[in-house]
Amino acid sequence: MYDNYDHADDQLIYVPENILQHNDRSVEYMRLEEEYNSLNEQCQCKNICTQVTCKCIQRSGGYNYEAYQKDGKTKYRLISKSESYPVVECSNDCSCAVELRPLCGNRIVHLGPIEGLDIRSCDKGFGLFTRSFISSGTFVCEYAGEILTATEASKRHIINKREGKMNYIMCLREYSGSSTIVTIIDPSTFGNIGRYVNHSCDPNCHIVPVRSGSPIPKLCLFACKDISPDEEITFHFGLDDETVNESDRIKCLCGAQNCRGFIPYHKY
């Protein structure tokens, strides 16, 4: 992964990809560590990965990205699928990572965030902006940080509230039949450029879980509409627990016509 960005605050530690939280020796942590270290099935492609040969693309139910030409360069955008399949990228353990680097069209997130992103001061504190046009479907960056257990996330949430700190913890729930897969990421201290992306009730990006070499997904921001130069990168923070007291909520400053008034609040 190529990531040349850094934090605006030198007290923060930049990590381009997710890392595990501290080992609290709990059963919950041991299960998380086991899942983190598990390997997905790798493809053995010696030529360009195709739906016929590539196990990663097959697990995705077909191609994840489509290629197009812009400014004389080949670029890729996410394909909207009619059926619900996971997005599975080829990883560094796949044969194509050695044989086809960097030609494999199923390794987009793995290449790192796009160029031309800026951390800027705004009415929300800091925000992430783009210096150049971004086409709809383009991968922007990952929301990377520490992978937490639910217990650790709840502890940190309580501490953040007590000390008046901003809460960056993101909880993603994936539903498959009767089962629910929960991934919790906290970029508060260890994180990448994605920690500066603010909420909007009318966002220009959305979160897509992308798996690459591990069952635990990366939380990836893809543009859901064309984004103009100097526009702020935003995404919707997700489902809202409307039973939470208004005093526990943070006012939303997105300025969208459909603004709900408060940033979504959820429990872990």
Rank of each mutant, 00 (worst) to 15 (best):
Y65L: 09
Y65S: 05
A67L: 11
Y68C: 04
Q69C: 09
Q69S: 12
K70L: 10
D71T: 06
G72D: 08
G72N: 10
G72Q: 09
G72H: 11
K73T: 11
T74G: 07
K75S: 06
K75F: 02
Y76C: 09
Y76P: 03
Y76S: 02
R77I: 11
L78Y: 03
L78I: 14
I79F: 03
I79Y: 00
I79S: 12
S80I: 10
S80T: 10
S80Q: 15
K81T: 09
K81C: 07
S82Q: 14
E83Q: 13
E83W: 04
E83R: 14
S84Q: 15
Y85S: 04
V88F: 09
E89S: 02
C90F: 07
D93K: 13
C94L: 05
S95D: 15
S95F: 13
C96I: 04
C96W: 00
C96D: 02
C96F: 06
A97P: 04
V98M: 09
E99W: 11
E99V: 13
E99G: 00
E99L: 13
E99Q: 13
L100I: 10
L100P: 03
R101D: 14
L103T: 09
L103A: 15
L103Q: 14
C104W: 01
G105K: 06
N106V: 00
N106Q: 00
R107Y: 01
I108V: 15
V109K: 08
V109Q: 07
H110F: 07
H110M: 14
G112V: 01
G112I: 03
P113N: 05
I114T: 10
G116P: 08
D118H: 12
R120E: 13
R120V: 12
R120S: 07
S121V: 12
C122H: 08
C122S: 11
C122A: 01
C122N: 15
C122I: 10
D123P: 00
D123T: 13
K124D: 11
G125T: 02
F126N: 12
F126L: 11
G127V: 06
G127Q: 02
L128C: 01
F129Q: 06
F129E: 02
T130C: 10
R131V: 01
S132I: 11
F133Y: 10
S136T: 03
G137Q: 01
G137C: 05
G137D: 04
T138K: 00
F139K: 05
V140Y: 04
V140R: 00
C141Q: 05
E142F: 09
E142H: 07
E142L: 11
E142R: 14
Y143S: 06
G145Q: 03
I147H: 05
T149Y: 03
A150M: 02
A150D: 04
T151Q: 09
E152D: 10
E152Y: 10
A153V: 08
A153H: 04
A153P: 00
A153S: 06
R156P: 04
H157K: 15
I158E: 15
I158V: 12
I159M: 07
E163L: 09
G164Q: 00
M166Q: 01
N167P: 03
Y168Q: 09
Y168G: 09
I169K: 11
I169P: 06
M170T: 12
C171N: 14
C171A: 14
L172P: 03
L172R: 11
R173M: 11
R173E: 15
E174C: 11
Y175I: 14
S176A: 07
G177N: 04
S178L: 11
S178C: 05
